[in-house]
Design a protein around this nucleic acid. Structure first.
Length: 532
RNA sequence: UGGGGCGUCGCCAAGCGGCCAAGGCAGCGGGUUUUGAUCCCGCCAUUCGGAGGUUCGAGUCCUCCCGCCCCAGCCA
């Protein structure tokens, strides 16, 4: 079995392409075959080397290795041209001089047959001469095309004398200025497959209509192998868009920060967001290959992101909305070094040394002066009550310090002795466990909390998908406090900030400490509290 | 009203004439827990778009109907 992933280098890869990549590479691997990476670069107008390189990097990043060299449709331009001449000589292709508007009229409609082009029966010699002139750059763009001679009355519009070659007097990013004509997708694709010995040419459902044409070329040309085309439903995800046109618009109009904006479903965006290749592959493998075109729930993707990160992301502590806590019974100047496990279920991932002094930060949301809150309702720190500091001792909130406006700006607390690594005496019952950061050694950082780019499950429903943009898709938190070890955080390597979510250091912020939230931890409690 | 596809739990999806219609996601209930996370246990379609028919027996075969998607680029 030989398969291929055949992107056109005119845009960035997104999650939908990932499904195709996993399918093509996965299928070949399971059957002891190979998969090619081949660029379908038949239209120099929209394609570029920049996209070629980005796509190669994305496929590699996903973890796939194609068989042999990277291939290009443009490598086959000579062969494709020779086969076009073969069709002309066999009376199966002709040069047509209808202009685009006339061609549309002659094509007929969905319910009416088309009419033969007046140029359809021109002599072989004339076709050959004209095609040569097209190639030589002697014909203006739009003046002539080479068409297959099939059936203008075919109920399948793709068979109504489709275009094989059009004049484009422009340079190609790989073949340079050597061509003035370029093959169409329909003409090129199957022959590319045949040249490479592809056995299973897998594409999306909208190409099912093209299969008779694909087969027609294979049957009418002396190709070295007989590839077969199979179609499957493309991936649709709710709360996002995956059409190249729409992604391009979001980037061009500045609704996002570029092709690698962490809110985008592009592979570059997912990578910058901290989503791992393993999570993407696991998600794609969970998708069955079917001919139904459904819409997969974003929650299904999120499940695989969390599953992989939960298993593999090292833990760390970071306070998003810092509130100062001073331990009044802590000996002045004393610093204790705690060893915190990098992963609660995987001791082999080791531990890190974290300093603990008499001053620290906890999250504002983890403190309340409302002593009426039940233990069930609020498993955090309440004035006059106890709480466990994650990986550290139990403390009790004794007093609060308020500013002129009456807002709490500091909590004075006392540490319960001998509670590091062991339970407090039975009369002391901590409400729960909260995270913290040592104030003395804390690192200031910026956190970017991402939410779904679109507020509507189906952004295209209302006509203008931009109307569905989620205004709260990015929330920037400044002045967050990270534990000291995070100074060494590697961009792109995802961590779990305990009790908050998964984050990775931004790869485009230089030395500044900026973290992108990949995804929040699952929060079943939020639903309870929202219900009141 | 042309052609090509598709309709099984809120979402994705097995099923290819024969025990009580897999599984995953979501949801719900409970247990464990120094992350309200993870983990564990349990619940979640007498019904397969609808109506007829064939058959001892149909989600699976036949007929008709209904609904949704794709195609009229010298894009892919």
């Amino acid at each position: 079995m030989v398969t291929r992933f055949p992107p056109e280098p005119n845009g960035y890869l997104h999650i939908g392409h990932a499904k195709s990549i996993c399918l093509n590479f996965g299928l070949a691997e399971r059957h002891g075959g190979v998969c090619h990476l081949r660029f379908d670069d038949t239209n120099p107008e929209t394609e570029s080397e920049e996209f070629v390189n980005a796509i190669i990097a994305d496929v590699r990043w996903l973890g796939f290795q194609w068989h042999g060299p990277v291939r290009y449709a443009s490598d086959y331009f000579d062969q494709l041209h020779a086969w076009a001449v073969h069709l002309i000589e066999a009376g199966k292709a002709y040069v047509c001089e209808l202009d685009p508007e006339q061609m549309r009229q002659y094509r007929g409609t969905l319910t009416e047959p088309g009419r033969d082009s007046p140029w359809r029966d021109r002599p072989v010699a004339e076709n050959l001469a004209l095609f040569a002139a097209m190639r030589a750059g002697e014909v203006e763009e739009g003046r002539m095309v080479l068409r297959a001679r099939i059936d203008m009355a075919a109920p399948n519009i793709n068979l109504r004398d489709p275009v094989l070659y059009r004049v484009k007097r422009m340079a190609h990013h790989r073949s340079g200025a050597s061509w003035n004509i370029y093959p169409s997708y329909d003409y090129a694709h199957g022959q590319e497959d045949a040249i490479e010995g592809v056995t299973h040419s897998i594409c999306t459902l909208e190409f099912a209509d093209h299969r008779p044409l694909y087969d027609w070329f294979i049957a009418n040309l002396p190709v070295p192998s007989q590839p077969r085309q199979y179609e499957f439903g493309r991936l649709n995800l709710n709360y996002t868009v995956t059409s190249k046109r729409k992604l391009k618009q979001l980037v061009a109009d500045g609704h996002v920060d570029g092709w690698d904006d962490p809110r985008l479903p592009t592979l570059a965006g997912l990578r910058r967001r901290g989503v791992t290749p393993a999570a993407i592959r696991a998600f794609c493998d969970s998708l069955a290959v079917a001919r139904t075109d459904g819409i997969v729930d974003m929650a299904q993707f999120e499940h695989f992101i969390r599953a992989d990160l939960n298993d593999n992301a090292p833990r760390a502590l970071c306070v998003l909305r810092p509130l100062r806590v001073t331990l009044t019974n802590w000996p002045a100047g004393k610093v204790e070094n705690l060893d915190l496990a990098n992963h609660p279920q995987r001791p082999e991932l080791g531990a890190r040394r974290v300093p603990f002094g008499g001053a620290l930060y906890i999250d504002r949301d983890d403190f309340s002066t409302d002593t009426a809150l039940s233990r069930k309702q609020f498993k955090r720190l309440v004035l006059g009550d106890w709480v466990r500091l994650r990986g550290a001792p139990v403390i009790r909130a004794d007093e609060v310090v308020r500013d002129a406006a009456g807002a709490v700006i500091e909590v004075l607390a006392s540490l319960v002795p001998d509670t590091l690594g062991s339970d407090p005496p039975p009369e002391i019952k901590p409400r729960g466990v909260i995270h913290w950061v040592d104030a003395e050694t804390a690192l200031d950082c910026e956190l970017r909390l991402y939410d779904r780019l679109f507020a509507a499950a189906n952004p295209e429903a209302g006509g203008d998908f931009l109307q569905a943009l989620n205004p709260g898709s990015l929330q920037v938190l400044a002045g967050c406090k990270a534990e000291a070890s995070l100074a060494a955080a590697v961009p792109g390597a995802t961590l779990q900030f305990e009790r908050e979510g998964y984050f990775c250091r931004d790869s485009r912020s230089g030395d500044r400490l900026v973290f992108n939230r990949t995804i929040a931890l699952r929060d079943t409690w939020a639903k309870h509290s929202a219900e009141g």
